[in-house]
Nucleic acid binder design. Structure first.
Lengths: 222, 222, 222, 222
DNA sequence: AATGAATGAGGGTTCATTCAT
DNA sequence: TATGAATGAACCCTCATTCAT
């Protein structure tokens, strides 16, 4: 039987998944290696066969899920098409799908908040790989919209943050209040997009949105 | 001597302040009672004279700062006047002052995110005392604006969350990226208010805003 | 009661004694902190109140007994008088008393042999503080004897090591064979001194020895 | 294939050599089976194919080198010839060659000192096979010398220990101070032999030494 | 009121040993 | 034969908590 080989190849992944759950549940400091081990169905010692220390396990776990998110984001952006407003919608859709509603992305934020001070390189890498590029992409998109006359020029400064804030806010509420939070997700997103576009668009932009005219430039990938 | 009495009365407060700093620095689990004691200028044992356990110290510390925020919020709301848009501005001003920019409010959010699962009553109380009332107040305010024709009716559903999201987003960025975050706070707030009002107001509302007509109802206090 | 203060002052010493016994019994690596604690009549944790790590405990224990030996050696040398041969006898007497027969000195040698590679500064300090000075002193003594015509000039090179070797040899036998070693200590020392002086002395020296003529120079202290 | 068979036959020896190096380097307790395995170029598991436990590996390793030394000693003694003094010289030469200067013999002493208490049968066997016979042989040799008038009768009691002490002393210095020890080995041995014979020989013995008259009895082998 | 020595229950990590492959 | 993943029993060290002073 190839059982042995199969396990060997999959163990690190299983442990990383278990680590994600365990760390998400109780935070880095309060999680015991034994908790992780139990979730992974192995004993404490086995973890040390694959990961040097608790810190390394945490880092590699975060890295692992970061890579996933990065790949998804790149893929998403490569295919976004249509008017500036439609591109914006596509981007927000990704944000909601990956950050607010997907547990993985959500808990990554918790890790940043809870343990970022203990793992500064984790924060830095997140900033470099996600936050800055994402902000940059939206800023570009907004600038393109302003250039094409679709968006009001006031959004050039810090518009990007304002634009995505509601999706992150929803994420945060979920992190804090969990499933107790009674929010109609679809309505929430609709409200976000409505308010956003209404605040963003020029009269000309509104016309373009209904007529479906494409936004001038293509977005650069992450 | 009076000195002794003074110390006695102030000790719990000093310890609570120290606890805030210590827990904010490293999180609940990773903070040692001795860290707190050292910051408060006492020894471990002294803390146990005032607080039963580490958990209780944490809870009472959070309670203490919650009460402060609660008082401030109540005061602020009692005096908000003017048009609906101006009331909204006043509210946002409070949000930025207390959450995004004030360290105290900011770290309270960190406590929620990091240790909320271990202290559910803390989360619940925060929800009951802050989140729900604040959302309710804004919802009322928005409803009033819609009723008076100032605000577009689309904001009735989940508009409140969208409205405050950027201020909380800024808070979160500060929590995660700390002082490394290069954001022009004034411009950020200006962008927020601009985009928000532009998205929110009806044509009639725009006129009212410039003419300074007050919004119909008063807001209920928290 | 002053019980508390008394214990506090004496605890480190008690722990060091316990550490000596424990480390002598099983070696550094095989000794558990709990062994030391049990011998000292405290719990594991208490040791860490006084000593940072197991390594530091070991080092401080060795330092402690080294200081004792150093003081004794200095005192001994200050008072050695008489002919060169008599001074030599006095020195050997010290060697036997402190190294071969005293458990403390004996186990210090075991620590050097067993754990010297892990504690190189311990070895270096032992070399600097004991071995080199002791060899130097004997070499001086031998040189003085050669100068006065009492000792044969052949001993000038490496005579010091040959001279003390039997006392160290006895120490080593005790370390290895323990109480199983059936050696008549007095006879052993007598044989050592007899063979040594017989090999060392010139015909003139023999006369001086019986007539009690003092050796020219005084020895320098350690 | 022959290669496989060759390896099979040599593996235990390779592991024993690796074990010697590893245990000599860090001591029994601090040495990991993996250290041994790495030195032997195999994996941990392979060692357990040849040796039941870490303890057994240690014991068999010591046994192995003991047998080597035993064989050498026997061979040496069988051919020693000449005067008593010359036989003594031959014996010392063996001591220096096998104990003081040969790494193998030297480290055996370290094992005795460091781990003898944990392996009492090892100590006992060493005593029975080496120490006691060697002492006995020298004692016999000295007795023969006394009987023949070559040696002074004072050496009959404990003379053997005194006689070999300097060679063991040099060994010990090497064990403790390693290569930092600056000793001119040839001069050291010369000083030893000079002082020893001078202390040992009667006037008649001196004559015999120069004239080369053989010592009466043959030595019994170990 | 406060100290700080001491406890004791863990938690992270190591490592001798096993066993399926 | 040999591998190396896995186990589980320790071991070092930490820290919340207690209590005599």
């Amino acid at each position: 039987m190839k059982e042995r080989a199969r396990r060997k190849a999959e163990r690190p992944g299983e442990i990383i998944e278990a680590a994600f759950d365990a760390f998400a549940e109780r935070g880095f400091a309060a999680t015991r290696m034994e908790d992780v081990a139990a979730r992974a169905g192995v004993t404490k010692g086995a973890i040390y066969f694959y990961f040097e220390t608790k810190e390394r396990l945490f880092e590699e776990m975060v890295d692992h899920y970061s890579r996933d998110m990065l790949a998804d984001a790149g893929a998403m952006l490569a295919v976004a098409q249509g008017t500036c407003a439609e591109k914006l919608r596509a981007f927000l859709s990704f944000m909601y799908g990956r950050c607010a509603c997907d547990r993985r992305g959500r808990e990554m934020i918790r890790f940043m908040v809870s343990d970022g001070k203990s793992f500064p390189q984790l924060v830095e890498s997140h900033h470099r790989n996600f936050f800055a590029p994402a902000m940059g992409m939206i800023a570009e998109l907004l600038a393109a919209g302003v250039a094409s006359g679709d968006f009001r020029p006031e959004v050039l400064k810090h518009g990007a943050e304002i634009v995505i804030a509601p999706s992150v806010f929803l994420t945060l509420m979920r992190l804090i209040f969990g499933s107790n939070l009674a929010i109609d997700e679809e309505a929430y997103i609709a409200a976000h997009v409505d308010l956003l576009l209404n605040g963003l668009l020029t009269p000309a932009g509104r016309e373009n949105l209904s007529s479906g005219k494409a936004c001038g430039e293509a977005l650069s990938p992450i």
